[in-house]
């Protein structure tokens, strides 16, 4: 009966994962391996193709148009113009590339639209967290703490299937941006993605599928060692159950992959350093880029994080 409960939990989390995350690993790998035929992504590899990419995205019907709107984000910050979701939700958010602007503005604007997508992704992760049995019964302040500390780790894991050693899919898989192009951006923008590529290429060799990913993400959210938690016991209890479910899932789904569970536990530790470095880079950006505006939700998450 216990194993049956753990399997039921795995199925529940997998369904929630499919419900809340718009682009999962399976379709992503199909795009990256060129199995989507006519729907191959547009490739951005230099400034010229970056501008063409905008045309491409504007001409093409956006998927997920009917996704839930982000009323809570916009309501919380009425008039917040950079929150741009729904049908016209593209890589570059609300602005357009004129071709006339100074070169150094490109990075900044691209960064702003990445922030918009990240804020939307935080909402997706929040909905997923709420679907974890027992999560919404936790102290509300602890739910906030778990999300604050867990959400960037979750986003990095969600980003991994979008990446290969040569680049990353963006804009719901419609665009492939090369790693070399990202490296060619001016400092410190060029330093932002490289650590994620290094992590993702290694993480992808573990070959988790979407059902494994769902459990792993739930484990990342439910960590009893996040700073400032008020009531650790129930969180640890929930995490223990999800960890057991993950361990069983891996045994069944990857019988030949030795030590996969232990390797994933190690990844949980590695992620913490990546997030710390990421937050420090954002703090550096805030100081050096006078025109930069940090999204209020991301600001909340990163303030006093590490």
């Amino acid at each position: 009966p216990e194993a049956a409960d753990l399997r039921a939990l795995a199925r529940h989390l997998f369904r929630a994962y499919l419900k809340y995350f718009p682009l999962t690993k399976q379709p992503t790998r199909a795009i990256l391996s060129g199995k989507t035929g006519d729907n191959a992504p547009c490739v951005i590899h230099d400034m010229k193709s970056l501008m063409e990419g905008e045309q491409f995205i504007n001409c093409r019907q956006m998927p997920f148009q009917e996704q839930q709107q982000t009323s809570v984000l916009t309501a919380a910050h009425g008039g917040l113009t950079e929150v741009h979701m729904g049908s016209d939700y593209g890589v570059w958010g609300m602005t357009s590339i004129s071709g006339q602007e100074p070169q150094n503005a490109v990075e900044l604007r691209f960064f702003q639209s990445c922030q918009s997508r990240s804020a939307e992704a935080v909402r997706e992760v929040t909905e997923f967290a709420k679907s974890i049995p027992g999560f919404t019964d936790l102290d509300l302040n602890d739910q906030v703490t778990l999300l604050k500390y867990g959400v960037i780790e979750v986003l990095i894991i969600m980003m991994s299937p979008l990446m290969n050693k040569d680049g990353t899919l963006i804009s719901y898989g419609q665009i492939f941006m090369t790693r070399e192009f990202l490296k060619s951006l001016r400092k410190p923008f060029c330093q932002m993605m490289e650590p994620k590529f290094e992590f993702s290429v290694k993480f992808n060799t573990l070959e988790l599928d979407d059902s494994d990913m769902a459990l792993f993400l739930a484990c990342l959210i439910l960590r009893g060692d996040r700073p400032g938690l008020l009531n650790v016991k129930p969180i640890e209890k929930l995490q223990e159950t999800v960890l057991h479910s993950l361990e069983l899932q891996l045994k069944l789904n990857h019988p030949d992959s030795l030590q996969l569970f232990a390797k994933l536990l190690q990844k949980m530790t590695d992620l913490r350093q990546i997030v710390t470095d990421h937050v420090h880079l954002i703090q550096l950006l805030k100081k050096t880029e006078v025109d930069m505006c940090l999204h209020p939700l991301l600001q909340e998450i990163m303030k006093d994080l590490y």
Partner: peptide, 20 residues
Amino acid sequence: KEKHKILHQLLQNSTSPVDL
């Protein structure tokens, strides 16, 4: 609570019943 106003709102925002 003020420090994490949006996160609180996202968590308390009642979505349609999860029909999983």
